[in-house]
Structure formats: structure tokens, C-alpha cells
Amino acid sequence: MKWSEVFNSSVGKKLVMALTGLFLISFLIVHAGINACIWAMDGGEMFNKAAHFMGATVVIRIMEIGLFIGFLIHIFQGLSLELQNRAKRKVGYAVELGNKGSKWYSRSMGLLGTILLIFLIIHWKHFWIPSRFTGVEEVTLSNGVTTHNMFALMQSTFSELWVVVVYVLACVSLCWHLIHGFQSAFRTMGVHNDRFLSLLNSVGIGYSVIISLAFAMMPVTMYLGWVS
């Protein structure tokens, strides 16, 4: 069987979603870990060092390209699958099955993903684009290195209430997206042992709640002035 046949089959397309999804899930752990440095309560010293490491290390910059490719494939494949699947039922039902058979968030991965895509664009505009292109004010770290003061950028960004609200709503969407996506990815890859599936389901819920809560607390604690 040709590779093109495999990846054009319904199972192959889902495999692409599962693999890129799990890749992005692993990225979120790194992202949350680096960002958690804002809570070191040292005026952003540790966080700026971590951000400098992420921005100035050539290996990580190369990995960043991989991350972009992962995002792009997940987004385009996800949207195209959503449209293809929707087109499989031209005449709909007068009375829908609704929540009688499945969870609303399992049926709304396309919608949740689209909300996350819109958030991602806002998020890039807030942090990634200033850091890479339009410039961020500089700060000198204790080791004498001058770098972008990303901590100050976070503080000024999260001083506006609407930004905090948008970020928290995005984290809520992320949580539901991950709760379905985590276990679904393993099912798509072929894990069919019921013991593992129930374990993965629990791990997935734990991961989704913890990661989303950690991200949501970043703008909230900054807005409330708990981070110095």
C-alpha cells in the first residue's frame, strides 16, 4: 500500500491528527513549565533568563520550525476533516441525538479548535511577533546578558481586563479540547486495551485540567498583582 493511500484514508487522516495533537500536547508541557518561572517572585529574572534561553539557543530555534509545522498540519487537517465529515450528511435530522450519545465537547472539536486558532493569532500578536519582529524593551540580567524584558511585556499585556478574560476563556476551550483529544489520539493510534484506555482517560483529564489551570492562572495572577 502506497504512503499516499495510507494518509488519504480516513484512518490515516486521523492518525495525522493524533500524532500532531500529541506533539502539541508535549509542547504545552514545555510552554507551561517555562512560563511558570514568572511565579519565582524575583522580578521576572528567572522567567527572562528562561525566555532568553528559548530565544537565543539555535537548537530551540530549529525546533520552533518543527512546532510551526505541527501547528499548521493540525490546523489544516483538522479544519478539512471537519468540513469533509460534515458533508457526509446532506439532509440532517429534525430531532438531533444531542447529548444522549456523546459529550458536547467530543462533538465540538472543530469549534473548540477554531476558538483556539483565533486565540493563537491574538497570542502571537501579543508576544511572539513583538519578540521576533517589532521589538521589546531590553533588560540586563544579573549575569550581565541583555535580553528582551518578556516579563514586563506580560505584565503590561495582562494589565487589561479584556485580555485576561480572553485568555481565561481560551484556557477553558483548551481544557475541553484536550480532554477529548488526549484519549482520542491514543484510540486513533490503536490502543484498544480497556485497562489502558481507562488509565489514559484519567491521565488525559488530569493533564488537561492541570495544564489549562496553570495557563489560566498566569494572566489572572498578573492582573491581580500577585506576581512581583
Binding site: 480516513s10 486521523k14 457526509k88 450519545g101 456523546s102 462533538r107 484519549q183 484510540r187 486513533t188
Partner: peptide, 17 residues
Amino acid sequence: DKEGFGACTNTGACEAV
């Protein structure tokens, strides 16, 4: 796939009914 059925998104509605 040729018959035009959709892809599975593991929602579980099939199993429920």
C-alpha cells in the same frame, strides 16, 4: 471510504445507540 462514510472522531455516539 469509497462508499462515502465519514471518519471516526471517537465521540462514542455509535456505541451508545
